[in-house]
Design a protein around this nucleic acid. Structure first.
Lengths: 129, 129
DNA sequence: TCGTTATATTCGTAAATTCGAATATGTCAG
DNA sequence: CTGACATATTCGAATTTACGAATATAACGA
């Protein structure tokens, strides 16, 4: 088997963690959850500026954590690997949060104030956030 | 159940990740592994300056990831929760590394070039003292 | 083609982080 | 007490990162 040095392997392991280890990125990943989300959805879900969200999405894309898919004017983002959510849940547990309190925030659903093609069809009141 | 906001919860989740998400910290945590290690052990295992290691140890202590125990002149560090290693392994898997290649690096054992009280006994006959 | 909408990118500065150098603290032996 | 050793802490310059502002691109409808 290939022998890897500790420094080399540590760098490789740190890369995805570094991309995720920011409150804003965690929030984005939780908002996307196991489904898909367009930027405008994240805009209303998180209440941030569009360009700001795009910047973080770009970082997550570069880190190979997110993949994007264009559909007309919209671009939908999705986790490349659902295990990234497990990583987040694991970290939540380690900081004393219940797995349940996290899972209720993992949101692949519609947002009431969002009018993107995913949310608009349904008008389900959601008392999240 | 307590209702937590997405920004708040994201910040809490990000905290331990941010503390871990650096190649140096990963290397330290892997070197400590499931056992204990004094600073001098890490010094020889990693080949870094003492003060530099202490700085990273301080960060990990503040993040509540490591705990320390003094024994005479030596201070031994140990993970507060072995699950932090699982977090690292999970991240390794996500970056395409085999779990095995990581586990061989998780090192609670002696280091041949280390003369700290944990390692030395195996190398130096007691009757030479 | 033009305007509108959805999203991306570039740029500059403020804020945070990194890491070396120097120094401090705490413990033990003599 | 003194010196040696293990480790911690402080400080500051250099590098990196965060984020707002402005601008660019791409798709669609008219």
């Amino acid at each position: 088997m290939k022998k890897l040095s500790l420094p080399k392997i540590s760098e490789q392991i740190a890369a995805p963690l570094a991309a995720i280890a920011a409150p804003q990125r965690i929030a984005i990943l939780l908002a996307i959850g196991t489904g898909e989300a367009c930027v405008c959805h994240l805009e209303t879900a998180l209440g941030w500026r569009q360009a700001y969200i795009s910047q973080h999405l770009m970082a997550l894309r570069k880190a190979d954590i997110l993949q994007d898919r264009r559909e007309g004017r919209y671009i939908f983002y999705r986790l490349k690997n659902a295990s990234f959510l497990d990583l987040i849940t694991a970290s939540a547990t380690l900081s004393g949060l219940s797995a349940e309190s996290v899972s209720t925030l993992i949101n692949a659903q519609n947002h009431p104030a969002c009018e993107c093609p995913q949310c608009a069809p349904a008008l389900i009141p959601l008392n999240s956030l």
